[in-house]
Design a protein around this nucleic acid. Structure first.
Lengths: 348, 348
DNA sequence: TTGAAAGCGCTACCAT
DNA sequence: ATGGTAGCGCTTTCAA
């Protein structure tokens, strides 16, 4: 059933039906009522394809996120959820595109076939061909994260440098002198992931500033890798008393590794990092961490995109967030020097 | 740029360009080459809206999942991820719709405006108006989960009854006599969530069969609720020595509650349930559980849907999965009767 | 092997 | 306040 059918039954022209429904032109009370009557009776809804073709807008935004290498992290889930709900609030639907790079089929479809009015990009790299490509096309998009050249882009990001530094200062204030850094997987670091690089930077600089002895590690996005990573850390330097991590998915494994090495948290060993709040609260003891405000970021990204869609020539806007560290239960004062054999007691 | 432009530059008609691109009609080698040349040069891609309007297919499938009440669980993430990737493999895009019920705006848009060729439904209720509605319309869809009347539907589901029963038998075999059941939030149970109901059924029947003393609880989808739930369990019956849970998101809190009540897992207390594998592995000790094969289920759902889209009159198909329990480290023989004061030692 | 043209269902301009 | 109609860009019949 189409608009012509409605027009016929209501005894008016198709354009009148269109206007009555869109409200883009005044329609007499009586006519409007008659049309609404027919529409309700038949349960008519205009075809999205036809409308998109006619007015050039799809009322859909694309959400571009990388294909699961290993799998997805909880934070990604939070982003997806918040973006979808924020978009729904603006009456936009969300089309998912698992694309890590510019050349992915799905990404090309999104843009080339004009399936969406705008896009939100996740998992930004410092040099990101997707961002560059969209910028070159002046295609409306907002990044969750920022590249090495964020000046004139649209994005909402986290100040990972600052956050990682805050973690270091927190630990240093507690007296820790030998601290490890647990990053995302090496593959992602090599790919230039923003959070991994800026986080590492912030950690390294702050540690130097405080005169700490540090070691840095990459770690797979899963519990087993986290456990292995802790074993490696304690093997490399049994005197390590704390760690900072960006790797949410490894967190459970990090805790397990510590437990098996008989390092009690936070008595013998402090753990902190940058992690979405609700995941920080699932571990015991709960993680003291800079809480990634994923829901807020997703919402803001959508708001920014909608603004950009409504005002094609608006100047670039962005939000850089620096959430505070939430003090929970995983950090404490550095105790007496841990005995070396506590470290060597690690089980395989 | 449109197909007419390509036709002009290639010196052929628009229909020839269309056929050259779709391959639905033979085109001379020479002509095809010329067209491809122009297409590549201009980077032409046909408009998805125009194509959808012309041939009635959007090459998009809808993924309907409930709006985050509290938030999303890890399992939901796994489903979303696997559905998106499986769809991409079939060259379908995925449109997300956060709709709990039939009447949600987003759900109505999906169907009424014909934005998608078919849909995959998550979080099925025993009586689910979305499923009924789609069935009545004969709209191609596949449910992840099954209603109370699954006979002639398309779905891929988990045998929660069997799975929960298997957990009970496992515990009973280990000598546990007093076992608690930790379900999803009461709100979801009331709404009729399939997994919550069938799981509870399976638990109850198997426990009766084995002559166990049981108590059942509802629990919010987060760590704090899990912790509170364990406290309640030990308060209600300090002699409880094991629990079965379907509540993945509460798992960390369950463990924490146990730790704070000084019940060591698995020495003093056994924990098991139905949980996606990778989440079972993030807790310490790792959870012995029936692993929800989320990735496989998502993939199968897409395969089923694509089959249904390709063969509109194919008879209903479905998959009922019963994954085995993966023995990890959270269950053990029931020990000596726990002392009552271990329970009363619970902190608030 | 190719072309012409009639839609697909809607929007929005131009009339009245 | 309303109607007629020309597109939007593609697919697909019908003809040649």
């Amino acid at each position: 059933m189409n608009i012509g059918e409605i027009a016929k039954r209501a005894g008016v022209s198709r354009s009148t039906v269109s206007y009555a429904l869109s409200g883009k032109r005044p329609v007499s009370e009586e006519t409007r009522w008659k049309i609404q009557q027919v529409v309700d009776e038949l349960g008519y809804r205009p075809s999205a394809s036809a409308r998109a073709l006619a007015n050039g807008r799809t009322s859909t935004i694309g959400l571009v996120f990388p294909p699961a290498g290993d799998h997805y992290t909880g934070m990604q889930l939070d982003f997806i959820g918040s973006v979808v709900e924020a978009a729904a609030a603006h009456d936009y639907d969300v089309l998912l595109s698992p694309s890590g790079v510019d050349s992915d089929r799905s990404f090309q479809r999104l843009l080339g076939e004009r399936r969406v009015d705008g896009a939100i990009l996740m998992e930004i790299r410092l040099e990101d061909d997707r961002v560059d490509h969209l910028a070159a096309l002046n295609f409306p998009s907002v990044a969750i994260g920022r590249t090495a050249h964020p000046e004139d882009g649209w994005w909402v990001g986290l100040d990972h440098t600052e956050l990682a530094a805050a973690c270091v200062h927190h630990l240093a204030d507690l007296g820790h002198r030998r601290v490890a850094f647990v990053n995302r997987p090496e593959q992602l670091v090599r790919a230039g992931y923003e959070s991994a690089h800026r986080g590492l930077d912030g950690f390294t600089k702050a540690a130097a500033e405080r005169g700490l002895t540090v070691r840095t590690y990459c770690c797979g996005d899963n519990a087993a890798s986290g456990q292995a990573c802790v074993e490696q850390i304690l093997r490399d330097d049994p005197a390590t008393t704390a760690l900072v991590t960006l790797n949410e998915a490894a967190l459970g494994g990090l805790y397990r590794g510590l437990a098996q090495a008989c390092r009690r948290v936070p008595r013998d060993f402090s753990v902190t990092g940058v992690v979405a709040g609700r995941w920080a609260e699932t571990v015991t003891p709960q993680l003291t961490a800079a809480d990634v405000p994923a829901a807020e970021m997703g919402r803001r990204a959508v708001d920014l995109l909608v603004e950009r869609l409504d005002h094609p020539d608006a100047p670039p806007r962005h939000h850089l967030l620096t959430p505070p560290i939430s003090l929970r239960a995983s950090t404490g004062p550095a105790g007496v020097t841990p005995t070396a054999d506590a470290g060597s007691g690690t089980t395989a």
